[in-house]
Design a protein around this nucleic acid. Structure first.
Lengths: 211, 211
DNA sequence: TCTTCGTCTTGATCTCGATCAAAGAGATTG
DNA sequence: CAATCTCTTTGATCGAGATCAAGACGAAGA
């Protein structure tokens, strides 16, 4: 019934428009959802972290590309059996509705970022989100410095934020030069004062972005 | 059980963060969902046309502002009874999941627009969407000229597209000057060749944007 | 050690859309 | 039919981010 799929970083899990005959959830690694125009412009529309659900019960075709951003393991169910299970177990449909509403809220929060935030605010927002989700996974409680690795390349960040990779790089450098973040190598980040980062993100002081 | 609410154009239906004790659907008129930053920057995150559903079963607080863009009539249910009905009738939860997945797809399509399209493509996309939904309601089948009224002010369009109202105005003028659209007054639009408009929108030739 | 390759940084310049400013076009009111 | 008022158009200028173009930094392999 349930089985596992592994992908290497960079591999495509499903192409937009392909038949997708399974649903699943991320066990480890990071996957991204993205849409591409004919001329190659791409926009990432979602980031899947461990425990996130993938798939559309009741939909034949995948609406966007799903790509493994890092090495990825997913836990999958074939779609048909899953759907009949859903029919029989009302609780599952309700849980799925919950999760979909959360995704919808996240997508709409991201619309505000894409439509109205400056490059600096976009970068600060992204780093804050990654830091918070990372910190949650690490179960760090206090408000000491946060330490984590960026799971995305500069290109992936630019696809997520609707920017170019050069702008991403410049803004990250700017935040580093101002001491808002510290960088070791290209990926390893320390945030000495999370509140200070948040102030750059354009979000309300407390974390509406993540609940 | 079921009751009606009316609003005048410009009135707010619910404020983001307010308790929202009803769900409902649009009977006539247009409502918009929007998010606002502390400094006043606004992004519209959804457009509600007649038959569209409003509300989050299982959520106490409204996640965004809901505003009547035109005079508006909604058909409402108090949330508690609706939720218990949902518990008892699995079909409803499934239908709601369907609708939420559609909204999610629309939101993500809009993310591509906000993050990667040019001002001209944004305007063309918006007009195409309004034209198509209008045309569907008018049940016009053929491919003759489409005629309809823009239900949004320039400001509302700019809030939806992540632009300024001046840019919206200029791009609409440009499309008019090139004969891609015809304007009578400020709102009444004729589209002599829908395909020609679509070519400016950056979307695939056939209508992925609307299904 | 040198090469190569992928990723990232930085500089120079350009451009699209924002911003600032003024005026037109319809409605509504006295 | 002036006097507002709201919505819209258009012009002039500015600036954030895109684009074009080198290099720098590490990792992996010969």
């Amino acid at each position: 019934m349930k089985y596992y799929r592994s992908y290497e970083a960079g591999q495509t899990v499903v192409w937009s428009g392909d038949r997708m005959d399974f649903v699943g959830s991320v066990v480890s690694g990071i996957a991204s959802l993205s849409q591409t125009m004919e001329d190659g412009r791409t926009q990432m529309v979602g980031l899947l972290l461990p425990s996130d659900f993938v798939g559309r019960p009741g939909r034949e075709l995948a609406p966007y590309d799903v790509t493994a951003t890092t090495d990825l393991v997913m836990c999958c169910f074939r779609k048909k059996p899953f759907e009949s299970m859903m029919m029989e177990t009302p609780h599952i449909a309700q849980r799925l509705l919950e999760m979909t509403l959360d995704e919808l809220d996240a997508a709409r929060e991201w619309m505000l970022l894409l439509g109205r935030k400056t490059a600096r605010e976009k970068i600060a927002s992204l780093i804050a989100i990654i830091a918070r989700r990372g910190a949650t996974l690490q179960l760090k409680g206090g408000d000491g410095p946060l330490v984590f690795d960026l799971p995305l390349t500069r290109v992936a960040m630019s696809d997520y934020l609707g920017l170019t990779l050069e702008t991403v790089s410049r803004q990250i450098s700017a935040l580093r030069n101002e001491g808002i973040i510290q960088l070791e190598g290209k990926r390893h980040v320390t945030i000495p004062d999370f509140q200070r980062l948040l102030n750059e993100s354009g979000d309300d002081a407390d974390g509406g972005m993540l609940n």
